[in-house]
Design a protein around this nucleic acid. Structure first.
Lengths: 169, 169
DNA sequence: TATTGTTATACTCTATAACTATA
DNA sequence: TATAGTTATAGAGTATAACAATA
């Protein structure tokens, strides 16, 4: 009986836009984080955590964590996909995928069907409820995206995603 | 006796640059991940994981995880900083900071000194060995950065960091 | 009363080993 | 022999509660 994540707000670490670095601080105030802020990895992680925090809150009504949303979205757009394919696409390990899929099956959001050509595998398909939920959830995700990126113009948002892809592809 | 992370390669989930979305897949091949790839959060998390993977490997000689590097870098540039300040700056919780600092103290990289104005707190200072290690480690971090961002021009790298900061600040 | 550092502990996430059934 | 799915379990990461010393 696993109930859903209970409104955990992970202590959003405040900004720290330090610019006047003086060496002998020792007291309170802001810290000199200029070196860390010069690293792409640090900025990417901070941004990802900020977005995930918003996502976690906005998706709570659907009881979907980010990983849940990713899995369901891929099944939504790739009916008949196998668990193995989902693992490869999302960087998850098979043993950890089992529970995710079981949970969705118990919630009536998807069903396992025999795979047409490989009897070891099983094709995953959303139920009508699953499709309805994901239509709403993806719409919500788009709306949350706007909230997160409201300081960026549409062009900047495209640039950001393009540059990020150049990092991980 | 906690030994260091043993060469864990977290199964770098391959690209999935799908572009020809056809609805009835059901088989093998690449998946249609276009919706996920349209989300900033998804791209930021993927990029952060890719960078962290490189960072983890490149920092192994120093036995520094990303969080360790962040903590030591802030102490390096802010001598006398308190544990509480580090927690606020990095989004860590105090109980989890204790072990990190203890580990560094046992390795002879830093020392706790009495805080000049608050006897509850303690100022954190790197030892000469700590400063020497961080000089090398930060230099290595810069080099790793180049490997991660080699598909981006210097101007693009600046743009990326600037856009990411607009997300989380 | 509030805060710093700390201990103990619980929960979540991620990883490995081993099994089954099919290929 | 290799692969898809599964089970059990171990480990790392992250969270809460409560305490002593000090503000």
């Amino acid at each position: 009986m696993k109930d859903f994540k209970t409104e955990r707000r992970p202590q959003e670490s405040q900004a720290c836009e330090t610019s006047t670095g003086r060496p002998g601080v020792g007291a309170s105030e802001q810290l000199d984080a200029r070196f860390l802020e010069s690293l792409i990895g640090y900025n990417a992680r901070r941004a990802a955590l900020a977005v995930i925090s918003v996502f976690l809150e906005g998706m709570a009504p659907f009881e979907l964590r980010p990983v849940d949303f990713s899995v369901l979205s891929l099944i939504h757009h790739n009916p008949g996909v196998t668990a193995r394919q989902l693992c490869n696409a999302l960087g998850l390990l098979p043993p950890n995928m089992v529970g995710i899929i079981n949970q969705f099956e118990q919630r009536g959001l998807l069903e396992r069907r025999p795979h047409p050509s490989d009897r070891r595998a099983q094709g995953l398909h959303l139920t009508p409820q699953g499709h309805a939920l994901m239509n709403e959830a993806e719409s919500t995700a788009r709306a949350l995206e706007e909230g997160v990126a409201h300081r960026l113009s549409p062009k900047e948002q495209g640039t950001l995603k393009s540059l990020l892809r150049k990092i991980y592809l």
